[in-house]
Design a protein around this nucleic acid. Sequence first.
DNA 1: ATGATGATAATCT
DNA 2: GATTATCATCATA
Length: 201
Amino acid sequence: MKLDAAYYLNDDVIWLAKDLIGKVLYSNINGNITAGIIVETEAYFGVADKASHAYCGRRTNRTETMYNLGGVAYVYLCYGMHNLFNVVSSASGEPHAILIRAIEPLIGLEIIEERRKMPFTKSAISSGPGSAAKALGIDRSFNAKSLTGNEIWIEDHNIKYPEEQIAVTPRVGIAYAQEHALLPLRFFVKGNKYVSKPNKI
DNA sequence: ATGATGATAATCT
DNA sequence: GATTATCATCATA
Protein backbone atom coordinates (compact mmCIF):
# COMPACT_ATOMS: atom_id res chain seq x y z
CA MET A 1 0.00 0.00 0.00
CA LYS A 2 2.43 2.64 1.20
CA LEU A 3 5.00 3.44 -1.48
CA ASP A 4 8.42 2.33 -0.27
CA ALA A 5 11.76 4.10 -0.44
CA ALA A 6 12.75 2.37 -3.68
CA TYR A 7 9.86 3.95 -5.56
CA TYR A 8 11.38 7.39 -5.11
CA LEU A 9 14.81 6.49 -6.46
CA ASN A 10 13.51 6.63 -10.02
CA ASP A 11 15.22 9.38 -12.00
CA ASP A 12 12.57 9.52 -14.73
CA VAL A 13 10.54 12.45 -13.39
CA ILE A 14 8.20 12.40 -16.36
CA TRP A 15 7.26 8.80 -15.73
CA LEU A 16 6.94 9.52 -12.02
CA ALA A 17 4.79 12.61 -12.50
CA LYS A 18 2.44 10.50 -14.56
CA ASP A 19 2.57 7.52 -12.23
CA LEU A 20 1.77 9.66 -9.18
CA ILE A 21 -1.59 10.54 -10.74
CA GLY A 22 -4.12 8.37 -8.90
CA LYS A 23 -1.86 7.74 -5.89
CA VAL A 24 -3.11 8.91 -2.48
CA LEU A 25 -1.22 11.54 -0.50
CA TYR A 26 -1.60 11.34 3.30
CA SER A 27 -0.71 13.66 6.12
CA ASN A 28 -0.93 12.99 9.84
CA ILE A 29 -0.78 16.10 11.99
CA ASN A 30 -1.18 15.41 15.69
CA GLY A 31 -3.30 12.38 14.89
CA ASN A 32 -5.49 14.21 12.40
CA ILE A 33 -5.21 12.09 9.28
CA THR A 34 -6.24 13.58 5.95
CA ALA A 35 -5.64 12.31 2.45
CA GLY A 36 -6.48 13.00 -1.17
CA ILE A 37 -6.08 11.42 -4.57
CA ILE A 38 -3.37 13.13 -6.62
CA VAL A 39 -5.06 14.40 -9.79
CA GLU A 40 -2.53 16.92 -11.11
CA THR A 41 1.30 17.01 -11.15
CA GLU A 42 4.24 18.72 -12.83
CA ALA A 43 7.73 17.33 -13.45
CA TYR A 44 10.87 19.40 -12.78
CA PHE A 45 13.92 17.75 -14.25
CA GLY A 46 16.74 19.03 -12.10
CA VAL A 47 19.82 21.00 -13.11
CA ALA A 48 18.93 21.13 -16.81
CA ASP A 49 15.47 22.64 -16.21
CA LYS A 50 15.28 26.41 -16.47
CA ALA A 51 12.04 26.35 -14.48
CA SER A 52 13.65 24.51 -11.56
CA HIS A 53 14.99 26.30 -8.51
CA ALA A 54 18.01 24.04 -8.90
CA TYR A 55 18.70 25.02 -12.52
CA CYS A 56 22.39 24.94 -13.35
CA GLY A 57 23.12 23.18 -10.10
CA ARG A 58 22.21 26.11 -7.88
CA ARG A 59 22.61 25.12 -4.25
CA THR A 60 21.14 27.42 -1.64
CA ASN A 61 19.55 26.92 1.72
CA ARG A 62 16.21 26.49 0.03
CA THR A 63 17.19 24.19 -2.83
CA GLU A 64 19.39 21.97 -0.68
CA THR A 65 16.34 19.81 0.06
CA MET A 66 16.05 18.77 -3.57
CA TYR A 67 19.59 17.38 -3.59
CA ASN A 68 18.62 14.78 -1.03
CA LEU A 69 18.16 11.14 -1.92
CA GLY A 70 14.67 10.68 -3.40
CA GLY A 71 11.82 10.13 -0.97
CA VAL A 72 11.61 13.41 0.92
CA ALA A 73 9.24 16.37 0.74
CA TYR A 74 10.31 19.71 -0.70
CA VAL A 75 8.03 22.45 0.63
CA TYR A 76 8.65 26.13 0.05
CA LEU A 77 6.77 29.40 0.27
CA CYS A 78 5.62 31.01 -2.96
CA TYR A 79 4.29 34.52 -3.51
CA GLY A 80 4.62 35.19 0.19
CA MET A 81 1.66 33.08 1.25
CA HIS A 82 1.42 29.67 -0.40
CA ASN A 83 3.18 26.50 0.62
CA LEU A 84 3.97 24.34 -2.39
CA PHE A 85 4.58 20.62 -1.90
CA ASN A 86 6.93 18.59 -4.09
CA VAL A 87 8.11 14.99 -4.09
CA VAL A 88 11.91 14.72 -4.37
CA SER A 89 13.08 11.78 -6.46
CA SER A 90 16.21 10.20 -7.89
CA ALA A 91 19.68 9.75 -6.44
CA SER A 92 21.39 12.00 -3.93
CA GLY A 93 22.84 15.01 -5.76
CA GLU A 94 20.20 14.92 -8.51
CA PRO A 95 17.64 17.65 -7.68
CA HIS A 96 14.64 16.08 -9.43
CA ALA A 97 11.18 16.91 -8.11
CA ILE A 98 7.49 16.57 -8.87
CA LEU A 99 5.09 19.33 -7.86
CA ILE A 100 1.71 18.15 -6.59
CA ARG A 101 -0.75 20.63 -8.07
CA ALA A 102 -4.15 19.26 -7.05
CA ILE A 103 -5.78 16.51 -5.02
CA GLU A 104 -9.28 15.10 -4.75
CA PRO A 105 -10.25 15.03 -1.03
CA LEU A 106 -10.64 11.43 0.16
CA ILE A 107 -10.07 11.01 3.90
CA GLY A 108 -10.66 13.40 6.81
CA LEU A 109 -13.07 15.56 4.88
CA GLU A 110 -14.25 17.46 7.97
CA ILE A 111 -10.69 18.45 8.84
CA ILE A 112 -10.00 19.51 5.26
CA GLU A 113 -13.17 21.60 5.23
CA GLU A 114 -12.16 23.29 8.47
CA ARG A 115 -8.66 24.09 7.11
CA ARG A 116 -10.05 25.53 3.90
CA LYS A 117 -13.24 26.98 5.37
CA MET A 118 -15.40 25.68 2.55
CA PRO A 119 -17.36 22.47 1.79
CA PHE A 120 -15.45 19.70 -0.01
CA THR A 121 -18.04 19.84 -2.78
CA LYS A 122 -16.46 23.14 -3.84
CA SER A 123 -13.69 22.29 -6.29
CA ALA A 124 -11.53 25.20 -5.12
CA ILE A 125 -10.94 23.40 -1.80
CA SER A 126 -7.87 21.56 -3.13
CA SER A 127 -7.38 22.87 -6.64
CA GLY A 128 -3.93 24.29 -7.34
CA PRO A 129 -0.68 23.65 -5.46
CA GLY A 130 -1.23 26.23 -2.73
CA SER A 131 -4.75 25.04 -1.99
CA ALA A 132 -3.90 21.33 -2.14
CA ALA A 133 -1.10 21.77 0.39
CA LYS A 134 -3.30 23.81 2.69
CA ALA A 135 -6.10 21.24 2.49
CA LEU A 136 -3.69 18.60 3.82
CA GLY A 137 -2.18 20.98 6.38
CA ILE A 138 1.23 20.90 4.71
CA ASP A 139 3.46 23.86 5.53
CA ARG A 140 7.20 24.48 5.53
CA SER A 141 7.68 22.44 8.69
CA PHE A 142 7.29 19.42 6.37
CA ASN A 143 10.29 20.45 4.28
CA ALA A 144 12.88 17.66 4.00
CA LYS A 145 10.67 15.18 5.88
CA SER A 146 10.77 11.57 4.72
CA LEU A 147 7.86 10.33 2.65
CA THR A 148 8.21 6.90 4.22
CA GLY A 149 7.63 8.10 7.78
CA ASN A 150 4.36 8.49 9.68
CA GLU A 151 3.70 12.21 9.19
CA ILE A 152 3.45 12.37 5.41
CA TRP A 153 3.39 9.52 2.92
CA ILE A 154 1.87 8.27 -0.34
CA GLU A 155 -0.17 5.10 -0.84
CA ASP A 156 -1.14 3.11 -3.90
CA HIS A 157 -4.88 2.39 -3.77
CA ASN A 158 -4.78 0.77 -7.17
CA ILE A 159 -6.70 3.65 -8.70
CA LYS A 160 -6.07 3.45 -12.44
CA TYR A 161 -6.95 5.98 -15.07
CA PRO A 162 -6.88 4.88 -18.70
CA GLU A 163 -4.13 6.45 -20.75
CA GLU A 164 -6.58 8.59 -22.74
CA GLN A 165 -7.92 10.12 -19.54
CA ILE A 166 -4.56 11.67 -18.62
CA ALA A 167 -3.97 15.08 -20.18
CA VAL A 168 -0.46 16.41 -20.88
CA THR A 169 0.11 20.17 -21.15
CA PRO A 170 2.81 22.80 -20.53
CA ARG A 171 3.54 23.72 -16.91
CA VAL A 172 1.84 26.65 -15.20
CA GLY A 173 3.38 29.91 -14.03
CA ILE A 174 6.91 29.46 -15.39
CA ALA A 175 6.96 31.84 -18.35
CA TYR A 176 10.44 32.98 -17.26
CA ALA A 177 11.84 29.56 -18.18
CA GLN A 178 12.09 30.52 -21.86
CA GLU A 179 12.34 27.50 -24.16
CA HIS A 180 11.47 25.18 -21.28
CA ALA A 181 8.20 26.99 -20.58
CA LEU A 182 6.33 25.07 -23.25
CA LEU A 183 7.56 21.56 -22.52
CA PRO A 184 4.68 19.11 -21.92
CA LEU A 185 5.48 18.23 -18.31
CA ARG A 186 2.14 18.79 -16.61
CA PHE A 187 -0.22 15.87 -16.14
CA PHE A 188 -3.81 15.83 -14.94
CA VAL A 189 -6.97 13.74 -14.94
CA LYS A 190 -9.26 14.96 -17.69
CA GLY A 191 -12.62 16.12 -16.40
CA ASN A 192 -11.69 15.91 -12.70
CA LYS A 193 -13.23 18.95 -11.05
CA TYR A 194 -10.35 19.47 -8.61
CA VAL A 195 -7.80 20.07 -11.39
CA SER A 196 -6.62 23.69 -11.45
CA LYS A 197 -6.98 25.99 -14.41
CA PRO A 198 -6.14 25.81 -17.24
CA ASN A 199 -7.84 22.41 -17.30
CA LYS A 200 -8.64 22.12 -20.99
CA ILE A 201 -6.28 20.97 -23.68
C1' DA B 1 -17.46 32.54 -18.06
C1' DT B 2 -13.38 35.12 -18.48
C1' DG B 3 -9.92 38.48 -17.28
C1' DA B 4 -7.46 41.90 -14.16
C1' DT B 5 -5.59 42.90 -9.70
C1' DG B 6 -3.88 43.07 -5.00
C1' DA B 7 -2.11 40.40 -1.11
C1' DT B 8 2.25 39.25 1.22
C1' DA B 9 7.05 37.39 2.75
C1' DA B 10 10.99 34.20 2.04
C1' DT B 11 14.67 34.02 -0.96
C1' DC B 12 18.36 35.59 -3.69
C1' DT B 13 21.10 39.52 -5.79
C1' DG C 1 15.31 45.82 -3.85
C1' DA C 2 13.37 42.55 -7.26
C1' DT C 3 11.35 38.33 -7.98
C1' DT C 4 8.13 34.65 -7.30
C1' DA C 5 6.43 26.66 -9.61
C1' DT C 6 -0.39 31.41 -6.58
C1' DC C 7 -5.20 32.42 -4.94
C1' DA C 8 -9.37 34.93 -4.01
C1' DT C 9 -11.95 38.68 -5.25
C1' DC C 10 -13.94 41.85 -8.03
C1' DA C 11 -15.11 43.63 -12.40
C1' DT C 12 -17.07 43.23 -16.95
C1' DA C 13 -19.92 40.32 -20.34
